[in-house]
Design a protein around this nucleic acid. Structure first.
Lengths: 333, 333
DNA sequence: GGAGGTTAGTTATACGTAACACTTCGGTGA
DNA sequence: TCACCGAAGTGTTACGTATAACTAACCTCC
């Protein structure tokens, strides 16, 4: 494969402007105050402009030993939420002169195989979200500064988390307050800390309510999958009045299952989700769900990584979440 | 900002294995057949393993003059569709040893400002989708090989397109066949060739149907925006029996507007979308929409870029699309 | 009038890798 | 015996940039 074309280098610019390559580097790197005269500087800038000069980033990265680029590893499946995370991370990054490269892990939420084989960019650090522990250790083996999102804070390293546990508690209080006692938890069929928390927290809360019951079903994160899992769970076993879902997409599947079974939402069945995707207000009735601030999540993750790169110890408080009460939950019949 | 840590280099590996740096490069670059003995090669690999050596990509990229990395510029707004495009592009790329870096343009569909300031990776080429012409010329100024998706084929350069025009024709034939004559076109309020095609093609088709009418409304691509625009359009002007939307999200907004206005879908109003997102089957009734194969789109785009990088002339045929008939369209009342 | 300071640059070097050109050495055919 | 060959490496260089270290004028002030 032949080189596409050979682009002008800083040396070409230097020749064009009649100065040394060093002068070009100083001027274009904005380090010239008191080192190069204004007229010469302008001549250099002009030369760069006419030649259409762009610095060779590979060379710069090699020289500086850093790239000002970080990798954001996200599960490929759940795009809308992580688009927000990316947006927040990129906003903070650009304020500090960093770029963010996105690597949607093909395995979805769960183990990711060598992100670096795919994102060939040279990297300063990694933000990895919702990854299984094994994938994290694989990344850690690379000795790159790493911040983990949605991960067990007990693991070694830096974590930034949403306060999912509190979100689940808010859902539980809301439904209990409406008189519900018999619950179905529709969980995501994915090995990830963030989903374990949902299950554990809901169980813990209901255990303290005498006469309550909790069943659990699992589904892949897709509307179709959830529809099947919910239909199955709703037709077998004891009657439930509320379904708590790990994710809005699962809740959408529950709507479809309920409709097929002749159950009205919320009259016969209250449903809650988590995330507050666009989907949540597209379906009828609008979904009561826990709003997660994806952009803030991304911002905090990036801030934490920048802190690590600066050798600081990032301080971690969980990001608050809150329940959006809409039309899919009501008082128990 | 201090360097995080200084990682082992190929020279460290050489010292550990008792060979020259050149030998390390040969062995790890898999160029050693007949140049280095099997035992020495194994010794090098072993040394690399114990030191945890990872080649410095900045150095490699500088040396080779290419990065085997391409940038995929996508509108930040419409995440689900472009997740598919990315998946397809990345699949083809990895088969050829390339990586794909994703740059969600913050302006959404439309002009993007200097993607390279954000994605600091050194690049071999760019795939840009649904971008306005001005943004494309900005990228072209960078002299990087460029493939455009969803763009005017009349523009200079390489384009890969979905056969959107045919999709619109299929929608029109479907609705005309059901007896509809009075249409509302809910278009995306975004300057992009792909949306211009939808408008032009629908208008062209209906012009040939005596007694038909076509009104047009525009909305930003969001459920809420579409709901407002549709409510407005449906309460003013002549009665329509079918709404053709540029996008599934817009269609979801139309559902909500219709519900509020007491119009039943499809009994009183047929609705069609485009894209076939997860949303399309989440809403009730399921949406009749044009399925666009995002992954195939990404694959074709990447193949075209690889061809350009090889100096070949990529041959472009539009990618076929097809109508998914579901529950949101029915015979005119 | 010359020591010291400022201005406006230049020269030289290193970053880590890949690959070309070269060397060394044991074998081999004439 | 010796020219030649292949195997198994090594020495060296260049990629393009940023910057430390140096230089050469010019100015200032006692």
């Amino acid at each position: 494969m032949p080189r596409a074309r050979t682009r002008p280098t800083s040396r070409d610019v230097a020749r064009e402007a009649g100065v040394s390559q060093a002068a070009v580097s100083l001027v274009l790197g904005d380090k010239w105050r008191g080192r190069v005269s204004e007229t010469t500087a302008e001549r250099v800038r002009e030369a760069a402009r006419t030649l259409g000069y762009r610095p060779n980033l590979a060379a710069r990265n090699l020289r500086l030993g850093r790239t000002r680029t970080v990798l954001l590893v996200v599960p490929a499946l759940t795009t809308e939420f992580f688009a927000g995370v990316y947006t927040g991370a990129a906003r903070v990054a650009s304020r500090h002169g960093f770029g963010v490269v996105l690597y949607p892990s093909p395995e979805g939420i769960g183990p990711a195989r060598d992100p670096f084989a795919s994102a060939q960019a040279a990297l300063d650090g990694v933000i990895a979200s919702s990854m299984a522990a094994e994938a994290l250790t694989a990344i850690r083996g690379d000795q790159l500064p790493l911040v983990m999102l949605d991960s067990d804070p007990a693991a070694p390293g830096t974590t930034v988390n949403l306060d999912i546990a509190d979100g689940v508690r808010q859902v539980a209080e809301h439904l209990l307050g409406l008189g519900h006692r018999h619950f179905l938890h529709l969980g995501a069929d994915v090995p990830s800390w963030t989903f374990e928390v949902r299950a554990r927290e809901l169980e813990a809360r209901l255990r303290r309510v005498p006469g309550s019951s909790l069943r659990t079903a699992r589904s892949p994160i897709s509307i179709k999958g959830a529809e099947a899992a919910a239909e199955d769970a709703l037709t077998s076993g004891d009657r439930v009045t509320a379904v708590v879902c790990d994710d809005d997409q699962l809740a959408a599947g529950v709507y479809k299952a309920a409709r097929r079974l002749g159950l009205r939402v919320p009259a016969d069945l209250s449903v809650t989700g988590m995330d507050d995707l666009a989907l949540a207000t597209a379906i009828d009735p609008e979904l009561t769900t826990v709003r997660l601030d994806a952009e803030l999540f991304g911002e905090r993750g990036m801030q934490a990584l920048l802190a690590v790169l600066n050798g600081e110890q990032p301080s971690g408080t969980d990001i608050p979440v809150h329940l959006e009460v809409r039309g899919s939950t009501t008082r128990v019949p």
